[in-house]
Nucleic acid binder design. Sequence first.
DNA 1: GTCTATAATGCGATAGAC
DNA 2: GTCTATCGCATTATAGAC
Lengths: 199, 199
Amino acid sequence: MGDGRTTATTHEERHTGAGRARLHEAALRLFAEHGVSGTSLQMIADALGVTKAAVYWHYRTKDEIVLGVLTPVVEDLTGVVGAARARRGPRARTEALITGLVDVVVRSRMVYVVLAGDPFIGELLGKDERLRAVVEEMTDLIAGPGHDEAQRVSALMFLAGLVGPLNHPACAAIADDDLRRHLVDGGRRLLLTRAAAKG
Amino acid sequence: MGDGRTTATTHEERHTGAGRARLHEAALRLFAEHGVSGTSLQMIADALGVTKAAVYWHYRTKDEIVLGVLTPVVEDLTGVVGAARARRGPRARTEALITGLVDVVVRSRMVYVVLAGDPFIGELLGKDERLRAVVEEMTDLIAGPGHDEAQRVSALMFLAGLVGPLNHPACAAIADDDLRRHLVDGGRRLLLTRAAAKG
DNA sequence: GTCTATAATGCGATAGAC
DNA sequence: GTCTATCGCATTATAGAC
């Protein structure tokens, strides 16, 4: 410390810089709007007002940028899955997963849109073990073996359905508390009520 | 007829050829798996066992390929929206839209995954009027003005949620009739039941 | 209807100066 | 931490032979 460098960063310390937060912010907005494959490093660099090479100082590959953006939410989701698994009984586990998952996705908003909605993530699942694990465990908890066909369909509807309100402009103005409540209500109706008899 | 040409096609008749169906099939599978932006014309050509130039004989741009794949479903959805609008009362309209929409998406399966789930479509909405119109009218019917905040969130959950079961491998084996029933049940629980009191 | 060949551009990624 | 400059490659798209 005390030398001429304003931001001392070794190769391993890059992830602690403040520039990383701005990069995540810009990349995330572009990923959610155009998709990961539809977002070039040039677009990210332009949004930050820098060049591609500057972006590459923070991350060595595009995959690492995507993982860097997703990692905080992936860790939150790992906690939610663990807490839900600690409950006894499938209904209690489902209830815990609904409220925990909604809490995470509303806090992060656009991150879940990328995580659950972007086709590029499917390719990343084969490369990153933690990502693959949390997605698989989350799905298994409410749609895995032990649940019947109808419940599995409802569960997949819920997991994918969260993306709808999150990235729709009509819901951008909804306060976090209200959005959370509506999403939890929707999840309970989908997953914790019996199907009505056909009319 | 009777001359040496095996497939007589003028510039305007291209869309009636049998090769178009194979192209749609191959492109659709790739779009649903890798996303539109993640699918190159080379990948489509490889899947067909031909070269890129052969693909360009059918369509002049990638956008036209996407629109060509989506158009049959867009037309089906236009019919569903019209039929739903003919009903009187918001509940009847919602019910008609649920059953009609589910019918269309189960018949087409992967097309709706691209239409409702791919970020690239957002860019196409600004270029194709029929596409923009049907998406807007469909959303307005169950999530437009006249519905409260909770209902709008549920509606967007439903529209986005359909993608989940449709592209998940665990649901590929479900028979069309069963999948239709489960999706309609889920839609009714989301959109036609009151929210349960918080426990 | 499909091919080879090519134009023009953009992509992810690297090297090295400051 | 950011820059300029560049490499090698893939991309969309076109021209013209068969």
